[in-house]
Design a binder for these strands. Structure first.
Length: 417
RNA sequence: GGAGGGAUGCGAGAGCGGCCGAAUCGGAUGGUCUCGAAAACCAUUGUGGGGCAACCCACCGUGGGUUCAAAUCCCACUCCCUCCGCCA
């Protein structure tokens, strides 16, 4: 949720929103509704003040002198009854519009439209395409069965089998252990949440079409554990000493991937269901930029230990999504495609979702909204994709990355005879 | 699935339809006392909104309703607890 007061007073704030290519008409309509709302609110509050005074006076009046005063108060009541529905309707419409306005892009975010991300750094040497692409290798080794998954569930689903399962469990174990050492509290959250939780996390209404709903629309399957994690401190006013709160969510993620027909159809690069370890932080509002750097550093360290060549990009304003004020993507080189593809991201939401969640911190000066951040620690299926290409052995098998060996007890995945 | 009980401020816990934004205890913060500390005593201590100064409005699980007036009465919903049944 944006800050309406800043929207009308702070030109930079508005400019940051417009850099996300939001129509000026949406902002203007919102401000106009807000003006009307405040006008009526003032009228109503004045009426209420008069009514409160009148009622209190009735309480002090002897019974026989009351009827006349009650009649006068009834008139006030009726006047209010005419205006209150108008205010309620204005507030409803205002909220509907305000929810559609994205978090302003931070001033440091590069300009430009989509696909104009700025490369922050590149690490590692890119190599030539391997003998097999990830999908072919996974099928040959019996690690992924998408044909039968399509029979059972449709396109973009997969059965992970054999060593792929051991690799998944090893990745989760390794990454969670790493995060616990960094002060993250590991959490397996609910993956079904209410509409209000979706909205408070900043996903509804903007990303509604990406979400599966179940139980007749009562509950929604989360696309990331960020959603239930953000709800952990809903409505709370925290003490300064309690921050930062770092959580590592481990969950299955569900995404409709609407609007991606024909894109990334090979293998498990883009699927409707995958498991992911996600970092989520609640921090003091003065500390969120440091936290963003810290989350990014953890992500890079994980990739480096897997040995993948990658680059970090600073996502341009037009491609940021509703909630993020700034976002880095970590893209790994995918040899079969000869380009970098997204594996992780790290975002600073500032107070955007904290406003909706009502999560605040009591500081010496005032009670302020906390800042929330999130970052991918390990999206399993995509990590496997890169692993299938970068860790191929010359005989068509896999060499398990060093860091995972203690967790899966495997050094090699042999070609199946 | 059936039957009851409950939801109040940081925590515990009162609260006759008007004098309750809310008793009391505890916690926290500041002060007095002390060489220092403890104890004791005094004071302060919810959130949001409009003007943004005085002041005013709203909030006692959520949403409706009754009333001149509702934490207090009525209805619905959500959540928690206890008991019974069922499944693991």
């Amino acid at each position: 949720m944006i800050d309406l007061r800043r929207l009308r007073d702070d030109a930079d704030y508005r400019a940051g929103i417009e850099r996300k290519r939001v129509g000026a008409d949406l902002i203007d309509a919102t401000l106009q509704l807000d003006d009307e709302r405040r006008r009526i609110l003032t009228e109503i509050e004045e009426l209420r003040a008069r009514q409160n005074t009148a009622s209190k006076e009735i309480g002090r009046t002897p019974a026989d002198a009351r009827p006349e005063k009650i009649a006068a108060a009834t008139a006030l009541k009726q006047e209010l009854a005419g205006k209150e529905p108008v205010l309620a309707e204005l507030e409803r419409r205002l909220r509907e519009l305000a929810l559609q306005i994205p978090n302003p892009a931070d001033a440091s975010v590069p300009d430009g439209g989509e696909d104009d991300a700025e490369v922050v750094r590149t690490v590692g040497e890119t190599g030539p395409a391997p003998a097999f692409d990830h999908a072919a290798l996974a099928e040959a080794l019996g690690l992924v069965d998408m044909d039968r998954a399509a029979q059972a569930s449709g396109s973009r689903f997969a059965y992970l089998q054999h060593e792929a399962v051991l690799l998944e469990l090893a990745l989760v174990q390794w990454v969670v252990s790493t995060l616990v050492a960094e002060g993250f509290v590991p959490v397996v959250p609910p993956v079904l949440v209410r509409e209000s939780t979706m909205e408070e996390a900043g996903f509804f209404p903007t990303d509604r079409n990406q979400v599966y709903d179940v139980d007749g629309g009562e509950l929604f399957l989360v696309g990331t554990s960020e959603i239930p994690l953000s709800a952990l401190q809903r409505g709370e006013i925290l003490d300064v000493a309690e921050l930062p709160l770092r959580y590592a969510g481990v969950s299955t993620c569900f995404r409709r991937e609407a609007g991606t027909y024909g894109k990334d159809t090979r293998g498990i690069f883009r699927v409707h269901q995958f498991d992911k370890v996600e970092m989520f932080s609640f921090v003091h509002p003065d500390r969120s930029w440091d936290e963003l750097d810290a989350i990014l550093a953890i992500e890079e360290s994980l990739i480096q230990r897997l040995g993948f060549p990658y680059r970090v990009v600073d996502i341009a304003a037009g491609d940021l999504g509703a909630a993020a004020a700034k976002k880095y993507d970590v893209e790994v080189w995918l040899p079969s495609e000869g380009r970098y593809r997204e594996l992780m991201s790290a975002s600073n939401y500032l107070e955007y979702s904290a406003r909706r969640l009502g999560t605040r911190v009591r500081t010496d000066a005032a009670t302020r909204f906390v800042h929330t951040l999130n970052g991918t620690a390990c999206a399993i299926s995509r990590t496997l994709v890169f692993l299938f290409e970068h860790c191929q052995s010359s005989d068509g098998g896999l060499v398990v990355p060093e860091v995972l060996r203690p967790y899966c007890g495997l050094e090699l995945v042999e070609p199946r005879g």
